[in-house]
Amino acid sequence: MWFYLARRLLLAVAIVMLAVTLLFVMIHAVPGDPAAVILGPRATPEQIAQIHEKMGLDDPLPLQIVNFFVDVTRGDMGTDVFTQRPVSQIVLGQMPYTITLILSAITWATLVGIPLGCYSAIRRNSLIDKFVGVISVSAIAIPSFVMAIYALLIFAVWLGWLPAIGAGGDGFWDTLSHLILPAFAVGVGWVGYIARIVRASMLEVLGETHIRMARAFGLPERRIVFRYALTLAILPTVTVLGVGMAHLLSAAVFAEVVFARPGLGALIVHAVDTRNYPIVMGTVLVTTALFVISTTVADLINAALDPRVREGL
């Protein structure tokens, strides 16, 4: 296990470095100059040159990326040239909003999706199974931003039950009320997705020998389903959820824009527009790390649930 973890850690570092390097090359390949954006139209060429020097933009690209990684190992992700605040402070300040949104979305999607999938599998080909199938596919098919806009119009504008924008922050309930609509919009597609995966896995597991054996021994159906079938059927879902973090990070971008929420998505979109390289690099570093962590956690959960996986570590 420890060897496995060490191996995953090394792999994670390599993935993060590769992703950040690729992005670094990409953002420098497209035209744009942060100095021109920072200083505005009245800046003189000398002032622009000063900013270039300050940001290290005059250095060769390989040197810039090496310098970035060296600084990161010292805990320094650079300084935002607009506000002169440390990038780490800005990125880490926005990160909780995105993580809260993603975790809320995936939590409610899982809590609804797994029972739906289980129920559909147990009641295979019943009317309810067909109904859940239609609902699941619809939830997957409707783009999240469409769902977001309609949720906003219905629950914030028409009914006036929930706030339309922002992340709150004045206490738990305020934060929660600001989280409901974005989490709903980001997670709704996942409800259908998880329900379909769980249903398919459950059908497969329910047909296996050990389940038939359990039934032959007269074990209660509830125990068979939740103790013996679901623990195996859940494995593909856990893996998908781990990988799905990347998709959820993308979904968070639109949610943060539509709901005017703070977060990494909104931060990176604005940073790319303004060619704010330090923020772009810092954000990608953090989001890539989040992705690697989530896939590793998914693997560990799989290992904990399935002895066969554990033995292979």
Binding site: L152, L153, A156, V157, G160, P163, A164, I165, V257, A260
Partner: peptide, 19 residues
């Protein structure tokens, strides 16, 4: 003062009573 980049979102926020 709430920063809302998208004007349509701002209009929705106004209609919802947030601003």
């Amino acid at each position: 003062i709430l920063p809302i980049g998208d004007p349509k979102t701002a209009e929705t926020a106004y209609r919802a009573g947030d601003i």
